[in-house]
Write a protein that binds this DNA or RNA. Structure first.
Lengths: 148, 148
DNA sequence: CCAGTTAGTCAGAAGATCTGACCATCGTCA
DNA sequence: TGACGATGGTCAGATCTTCTGACTAACTGG
């Protein structure tokens, strides 16, 4: 959409590289540790499931996909044993998507890798610069994340 | 892949929001200004075309897709008049993908929107914090962008 | 208890991406 | 200089992702 223009890279593009790097690293590592089904789209959706379960509609909204897409991906995740659907006790229409047993194992690996990668980044940038980076991005999120 | 954990959000996820916001804004604006064909995938690839043209293989590598996918997207972009393919004078196997007339118009709009959005972000964060953010992301790119 | 909203599904189509096979050209080294 | 592995690119086919539109069931406020 933009175009490479030497040193002054567009801020959004600069944001893209770390995200892509983390995503690729996570997916590769979990695949290497036995979770070799699991596509990127499934992982992106699964990453948004909260500790006590999340409604399909909420997942869809946060991931910026339609309910249909989210439902389709949850079907796959369920078939692979990563998540389960349980009735929402507060609303008979709704069901909560929860992390299942296999999903917990996956999350454990993912959290470990995330921590590793962040540690590498922190080592490269320094503690202080990393803290500033996190702070700036967190403030920026006020503008850029409609689902805070 | 990860999971929401309150305030201490994973750095990569924090990087994701601005990128997504920019991408959505760009796509919506160019669509509103008449470039209403153009899918996200096409735009992502087109954004990597250099001033004097770029080889298909390089586009694919930078966008982290296969040559086939890149070729498919370039076909579409070409049909829509955004790019053209010319022989690479230095290698008879290769062809350069170049921005065509309609593509130039698109790029102009995209650059304008990019500048607008960055200005909003700078206004929100302050000049100094924005400069620090850019610097940190640029250094991080040394680790996270294999195609620098 | 009706009307409008919300949660989710079904069906079908379009897009994006991949794997595998293939051809032409390039570069190199004997 | 000529054979051979590497590189740029395409074709074909399959799978995955995502969307639009239509629908059912359940909630909610008057």
């Amino acid at each position: 959409m933009a175009g490479p223009d030497g040193d002054h890279q567009n801020l959004a593009l600069l944001c893209f590289y770390p995200h892509r790097a983390m995503e690729a690293r996570l997916l590769a590592t979990v695949a290497a540790e036995g979770f070799d089904d699991l596509t990127l789209a499934q992982a992106r959706l699964a990453a948004r499931i909260g500790p006590s379960g999340t409604r399909l509609t909420d997942l869809a909204e946060q991931a910026l996909v339609t309910k249909q897409t989210a439902g389709h991906l949850v079907d796959q995740l369920q078939r692979a044993g990563y998540v389960r659907r349980v009735p929402d006790p507060t609303d008979a229409r709704a069901r909560l998507v929860q992390i299942a047993e296999r999903g917990e194992q996956l999350v454990a690996v993912a959290r470990r890798v995330e921590a590793e990668v962040e540690a590498e980044w922190t080592a490269h940038l320094g503690e202080e610069a990393t803290a500033q980076l996190r702070a700036a991005l967190t403030r920026l999120r006020e503008l850029t994340d409609p689902y805070r």
